[in-house]
Nucleic acid binder design. Structure first.
Lengths: 231, 231
DNA sequence: TCGACGATTTAGGTATACCTAATAAGTAGG
DNA sequence: CCTACTTATTAGGTATACCTAAATCGTCGA
């Protein structure tokens, strides 16, 4: 029962820095400022500088860092960050689908466990879930090879919990419904926020900058394809 | 995504000290020496002294410690230790039964995760498993209330993996078999080591101080009740 | 192009959980 | 009952990941 000292470059803390840089860097992976990281991680800017210098100076650097010019992930850093994100999203999916967690509790648990599960655990829950590609929030799960799947669209019914999306397409099985939906702002290109699922398996959404909630039936939701936006 | 600093008195390290004291103290909960702890935990004796002083001096002390006289758990310490053991054994059972882990990999994963799961996770996996009372190694799982179940006997078939037991009783459905078993040392009071399960659902055991393995069929194993010994 | 001001970095400090080496306290033999 | 030896404790030091306060860098407007 020896005390397990996690080795540098693979700690909980480092993981969180990498995830933050990944998510703040956006799809373009542009440089991220110390201040943005400080805010996101809830630590003092000075601590950020310190950690970045260490990460950049490691034998296998996890970030590319230049004084006063922000950071971006190195390829090793990106690999690790995506692995942690994969863990997070697989765990969320697992907690929700296998352990019947209430959706609101899924995030915090995953946030803690993502740092400590083994490759085997990852592999086993992925298998149990049939190697899913999106989590209950509608986010894509990075592959085992450490790649984010191409940003394909997903059906609105696959999203369980709140999040912001862009509407990709609305199937036109019924021109009347289509027109009605469009009248409420539901059309390709519009911004859509998922509030929550309803008992009848439909979901409550809001569109554009409007705060008004629309209650979509299961069939209507099934006709709408969306793309995740932001983290 | 703020960095989570675990507060003193609830850390991974503290958990491991408490578990070690619980297990080294035995059922009599006698005082445990620094040296024994140092060996078990793989840290220097000086580090043990340090930690014990801190644990004993906390606002809610987790151990009772006197210089040069060893430690024992306080009631708060015992509660926490048993909770960690409960986590460990539930996780092992879960990995084995739900995630189909190979039995040899169950321990290490549980050893890491036991410190980080929430009450909810504990509750959900316990429910999923039907609130089990013994783990795949034949050890009792402490209750949610933090009590070790009375040391009842279990059927040999419930044990999946190696471990040492005392034979509690051998059912005498068939006097011939009973006699044959007894001839091999399998009788109430004898010490029995479970080597491993066999493909035919029986198991390989050794009895007493003998190293020779006996291959028991499923029916024979089903007639033997055992009690766990040691940790 | 010169400040001023905000962003960033350096310097110096804290707590945790380890370590080694030196000291002190118990224990057992003569 | 006192020394020798083993066990435990104190003293002083390391690395990690934070902190605050005090420089310094960079850019943007006059």
């Amino acid at each position: 029962m020896p005390v397990r000292r996690r080795t540098n470059g693979n700690s909980e803390s480092v993981d969180n820095y990498l995830k933050a840089i990944l998510s703040l860097g956006g799809p373009g992976e542009h440089r991220v400022t110390s201040t943005a990281l400080a805010e996101r991680l809830g630590v003092a800017p000075a601590s950020i500088t310190n950690m970045l210098q260490k990460l950049a100076g490691a034998m296998e650097p996890l970030v590319e860092y230049e004084r006063h010019r922000g950071v971006k992930l190195s390829s090793a850093g990106k690999r690790r960050a995506l692995e942690v994100v994969r863990h997070h999203r697989l765990i969320e999916t697992f907690l929700y689908k296998v352990l019947d967690y209430p959706i609101e509790e899924v995030h915090d648990e995953a946030e803690r466990l993502e740092h400590f599960i083994s490759e085997r655990f990852e592999e086993r829950i992925a298998a149990k879930l049939g190697h899913p590609t999106i989590d209950p929030h509608g986010h894509f799960i990075p592959t085992m090879e450490g790649e984010m799947p191409a940003q394909a669209s997903i059906v609105l019914t696959e999203v369980v919990d709140g999040g912001t999306f862009l509407i990709d397409s609305v199937d036109d099985r019924d021109a009347e419904t289509l027109k009605a939906l469009e009248a409420q702002g539901i059309k390709a290109g519009a911004r859509l926020k998922v509030k929550r699922r309803t008992a009848a398996e439909g979901c409550l959404v809001s569109v554009g900058r409007s705060a008004k909630a629309l209650d979509l039936s299961r069939e209507m939701a099934g006709d709408i394809r969306i793309v995740p936006v932001g983290s």
